[in-house]
Design a protein around this nucleic acid. Structure first.
Lengths: 346, 346
DNA sequence: TGAAGCTTGGCAATCGATTGCGCAAGAGCC
DNA sequence: GGCTCTTGCGCAATCGATTGCCAAGCTTCA
């Protein structure tokens, strides 16, 4: 018990009862004073406040949340499986997590970070049902929509970063992935490129849309199906590097790579450089996300911006509205192509 | 109240009392059955367990932790100030956070992510004193050691990613920053480079050590003081880009850049490329951290590895030992130079 | 002077799980 | 048959804060 950090401040009040005793009032009065209720006189309040100050007392948030049935905590779930090799340190995840953290802090909420899907995990780690969080933000829908739908059936305070899919019963925030892909396709065409390879696992709903958007732009401009190639791969740099190597080892027939994320695009650029294939002269490379580092690549990476700052804020504000009993609502974020050197004309 | 997600599962038991009622036993028996106590018969236990299963009951962790005085939650603090422009999405932070998250999950702990220093924040957001966490992991010591020392005086369950400094009263986990710098200095010399620019704010203890390590290697090999330059800057890419631009705009007199982090090094490489200065032929670039992307730069980045996987695990295991009443203990991680193409011979 | 109204503050139940202690029933023994 | 010992389970206090309701004291006005 002595190991409990919370008990280690030297002396003074640890509980409201002790503050009440010191102030010569009842616990309820202390509680009201701290809560800013007008039912306690200014004089009593300031006396209590200075005692609180002096003793370094902090309200016990466990006890409070047991009583109030609110935790003022939101769980952020990054659904990561071994299979897809996606990692929390993918800058996209950490950027959006950072902006979620900021937005939550502004609203006085804590952030519980979780890497396991609550609907997968049988060990009872679900923060919502175990009363550790008031709501859940889920980053990404994954490949199989079914479990998430089932989860959302019994859990109302949920919001998802992702796309609109049929049968969905939860609110989503996200950009227009089809449009993103389409913008890339059109830009590639405008640069005289139509022999495009797509990198990414199109079974993920959002990735699939990016893929279809790009392909539709290409084919509607007359590019034939067999000029394009889709290479399915997980989300890690190594996969993209190897895929690029084996595809381009014997020279470049394709003239552009469109990767499902900047991380993949960067690895592809490196592989091309190692093969002495020039970017963008021989092969153009386009990514997705516009992570902070994309602008600092050599050549700088052309990519589709997902505004993580706006995204994080939108997720948080939307979720808090839902928690407060407001209506569930989707938010569509602008989708914008950021043209940089990695994809200029031949 | 209906907004509470935890209440939305259709029907069934929400509290132990309800389970007890269903099973026809007392609450205490349910509690013991769930805790695996041998004081309840196998038969009763399995009856209770199947009831729990069927009703989707999850123990209320708030109530439990109020009673047990344990939260099974660890706060991770990323001390980020506006001034230093450091950002959680710096891959170093997100990588170490990810491995902390993994290690905590293995031990059944939750991760509370916080971006404000508990010793700075007056708003009472300190998770330890407000009983929201059993311990705190702090990533980095910052520039002024004083507040952290004061904080550690009253909070025992604290561990810090950082370096050994005089007057320290908390345990640290980290690599040998002086050695890291020294290895870089020696390597630069071996590549025939001794006109080195250092990028970074050396008032941070760890950065200062990297700096001193490098400089000591250079001067002890006979390089004169005025061949080296130290450019103080915050932790963001933009600063490094601008600093590089203004330093090298009129050609390169220096033949190497040693940046305090990979993020800075990458921005420096980009600036050099934009100035048509070749890396590594004209100027070598070395970073620090070995973030995942470092290997995928063009040219691949030479850097000092900070093993975030081992680091995260060490932080967690060390902290949990302290919480369990074990002795406070420092852990020194191996420090290793990773040589890649960005810093080969002229 | 007395009734009514307002302000201030205390009492006690409550949130949901844990745990020391006590009790009853059955087993084993003389 | 009576006694001790073990096993299995229930009672009730407890963790610390919140809040509906009640009460005492004071002001105000007829």
């Amino acid at each position: 018990m002595t190991g409990n950090g919370a008990r280690d401040t030297n002396g003074q009040a640890r509980t409201m009862a002790q503050i009440a005793e010191l102030a010569g009032v009842a616990e309820s009065t202390v509680s009201r004073a701290l809560a800013g209720s007008r039912r306690v006189s200014e004089e009593t309040r300031s006396r209590i406040l200075s005692l609180v100050e002096a003793s370094g007392y902090r309200i016990n948030s466990r006890a409070r949340s047991l009583r109030t049935q609110k935790t003022r905590t939101i769980e952020v779930v990054i659904p990561i499986s071994e299979a897809n090799r996606q990692h929390f340190s993918d800058p996209f995840f950490s950027q959006i997590t950072a902006s979620i953290a900021d937005a939550l802090a502004e609203h006085g909420y804590d952030l519980l970070l979780s890497r396991a899907c609550p609907w997968t995990d049988v060990s009872g780690a679900d923060a919502l049902t175990s009363n550790r969080a008031d709501g859940v933000i889920i980053i990404g829908q994954g490949r199989d929509p079914e479990p998430l739908v089932r989860y959302a059936e019994t859990h109302k305070n949920v919001i998802v970063w992702g796309v609109d899919i049929p049968g969905r019963n939860y609110a989503v925030v996200g950009g227009d992935n089809f449009l993103g892909g389409k913008l890339v396709g059109e830009h590639l065409l405008s640069q005289g490129r139509n022999r495009v390879v797509f990198f990414g696992d199109i079974r993920y709903v959002d990735i699939g849309l990016r893929h279809r958007g790009c392909m539709s732009a290409l084919t509607s401009a007359g590019a034939s199906q067999d000029q394009t190639l889709t290479l399915s791969m997980p989300f890690d740099s190594a996969s993209a590097y190897q895929a690029t190597q084996s595809l381009f080892r014997s020279g470049a027939w394709h003239d552009a790579v469109f990767a499902a994320s900047d991380l993949l695009a960067i690895a592809a650029m490196q592989a091309l450089a190692d093969l002495k294939i020039r970017v963008p002269e021989d092969v153009a490379v386009v990514g997705y996300d516009d992570i902070a580092m994309a602008a600092y690549m050599t050549p700088a990476l052309t990519t589709v911006r997902q505004d993580t700052t706006a995204g994080g804020r939108a997720l948080v504000e939307n979720l808090l509205t839902i928690i407060d009993g407001g209506a569930r609502r989707d938010i569509h974020l602008p989708t914008e192509l950021i043209v940089r050197r990695s994809c200029s004309a031949k």
